[in-house]
Amino acid sequence: MSIYDFVVKTNKGEEKSLADYKGKVLVIVNTASKCGFTPQFKELQDLYMKYKGQGLEILGFPCNQFAEQEPGSNAEVQEFCRLNYGVTFQIFAKGDVRGENAQPLFQYLTRQQGFKGFDPAHPNAALLQKALEEHFPEYLEGDSIKWNFTKFLVDREGKVVARFEPTTEPSALAGEIEKLL
């Protein structure tokens, strides 16, 4: 099994094989438009613009599992990302990223790269940890996705090489991306 074995749905409901991205470096991220981490769309778009000519693709997967912070339809999500952050990278259909109904892709990603903790230097790390402990303690168990804007880095051979939690700003991935390009 590899990343290229998965088929996902575009925001228009069409099937898209991840095999179409063979030879590319990928950042796969679960997103939400009404989250404290939503401004990360700007840095994700900046990374995409800087490196897409060298083979980077960013794949966004909207999810409404975390405090219902992605309530819109697939079309509304796409429009929000484009209008507010100039997003031109691929945004896929909304879907679950944790639990028994998680998209198979995200089940695979979390098996490949487990949770290693939040970046304590991030200004929202303590807030996120506290909110999870108080309201969603089950989210802290195991290697599942903990919140919106968890990012996975995939090399040109399709190997999931790193996981970055929401408390890692996308710009911090630049050095890791450059090593793979």
Score class of each variant (00 low, 15 high):
residue 8 V to E: 12
residue 109 L to Q: 09
residue 53 G to Y: 11
residue 9 K to F: 13
residue 79 E to H: 06
residue 106 F to G: 03
residue 34 K to N: 05
residue 129 Q to Y: 03
residue 173 L to D: 08
residue 154 V to A: 04
residue 69 Q to W: 09
residue 181 L to M: 03
residue 114 G to E: 12
residue 42 K to I: 02
residue 162 A to D: 15
residue 8 V to H: 01
residue 15 E to R: 05
residue 73 S to A: 05
residue 161 V to N: 05
residue 103 Q to R: 09
residue 145 I to R: 10
residue 172 A to D: 14
residue 10 T to S: 15
residue 123 P to R: 08
residue 20 D to E: 15
residue 180 L to Q: 06
residue 70 E to C: 10
residue 172 A to P: 01
residue 12 K to I: 00
residue 139 Y to T: 06
residue 39 P to K: 07
residue 30 N to M: 13
residue 45 Q to M: 07
residue 135 H to T: 14
residue 158 G to S: 09
residue 12 K to H: 10
residue 132 L to G: 08
residue 21 Y to I: 00
residue 14 E to Q: 14
residue 60 G to M: 05
residue 61 F to W: 06
residue 100 E to S: 14
residue 54 Q to H: 02
residue 146 K to V: 14
residue 127 L to C: 05
residue 19 A to P: 05
residue 95 G to T: 02
residue 32 A to S: 12
residue 76 E to I: 04
residue 59 L to F: 13
residue 169 E to Y: 09
residue 61 F to G: 03
residue 172 A to E: 15
residue 120 P to S: 12
residue 138 E to P: 07
residue 40 Q to N: 14
residue 9 K to C: 04
residue 169 E to W: 02
residue 179 K to V: 05
residue 137 P to Y: 09
residue 152 F to I: 07
residue 92 F to A: 01
residue 22 K to H: 03
residue 20 D to I: 06
residue 160 V to D: 04
residue 116 K to T: 15
residue 151 K to G: 02
residue 24 K to E: 06
residue 34 K to L: 07
residue 105 L to Y: 01
residue 178 E to F: 02
residue 175 G to W: 08
residue 125 A to R: 05
residue 167 T to E: 06
residue 26 L to N: 04
residue 83 L to Q: 14
residue 179 K to S: 11
residue 171 S to D: 11
residue 175 G to Q: 11
residue 109 L to A: 08
residue 13 G to A: 03
residue 37 F to V: 04
residue 75 A to C: 00
residue 61 F to E: 02
residue 105 L to G: 03
residue 174 A to T: 09
residue 139 Y to A: 15
residue 97 V to N: 04
residue 91 I to L: 12
residue 69 Q to P: 02
residue 168 T to V: 15
residue 58 I to P: 02
residue 40 Q to S: 12
residue 135 H to F: 13
residue 86 G to C: 11
residue 53 G to R: 06
residue 163 R to Q: 11
residue 97 V to C: 08
residue 5 D to S: 15
residue 91 I to P: 06
residue 63 C to Q: 10
residue 42 K to T: 15
residue 93 A to S: 13
residue 176 E to Q: 14
residue 30 N to A: 09
residue 140 L to Q: 03
residue 151 K to C: 11
residue 57 E to T: 00
residue 84 N to Y: 10
residue 120 P to M: 08
residue 46 D to N: 13
residue 48 Y to G: 05
residue 12 K to M: 10
residue 56 L to N: 00
residue 96 D to Q: 11
residue 175 G to R: 00
residue 103 Q to S: 10
residue 163 R to V: 14
residue 74 N to S: 11
residue 23 G to F: 03
residue 51 Y to T: 03
residue 119 D to I: 07
residue 146 K to M: 08
residue 25 V to M: 06
residue 98 R to P: 00
residue 148 N to W: 13
residue 18 L to K: 06
residue 68 E to K: 13
residue 20 D to Y: 07
residue 109 L to T: 11
residue 135 H to N: 15
residue 105 L to R: 12
residue 123 P to I: 07
residue 118 F to Q: 01
residue 90 Q to R: 02
residue 82 R to F: 10
residue 40 Q to R: 08
residue 141 E to R: 11
residue 160 V to Q: 01
residue 53 G to Q: 01
residue 75 A to M: 07
residue 25 V to T: 14
residue 119 D to R: 12
residue 150 T to C: 15
residue 67 A to C: 01
residue 32 A to D: 02
residue 71 P to S: 01
residue 110 T to H: 05
residue 131 A to F: 08
residue 5 D to P: 11
residue 35 C to M: 08
residue 156 R to M: 03
residue 170 P to Y: 01
residue 8 V to A: 12
residue 16 K to T: 06
residue 81 C to K: 07
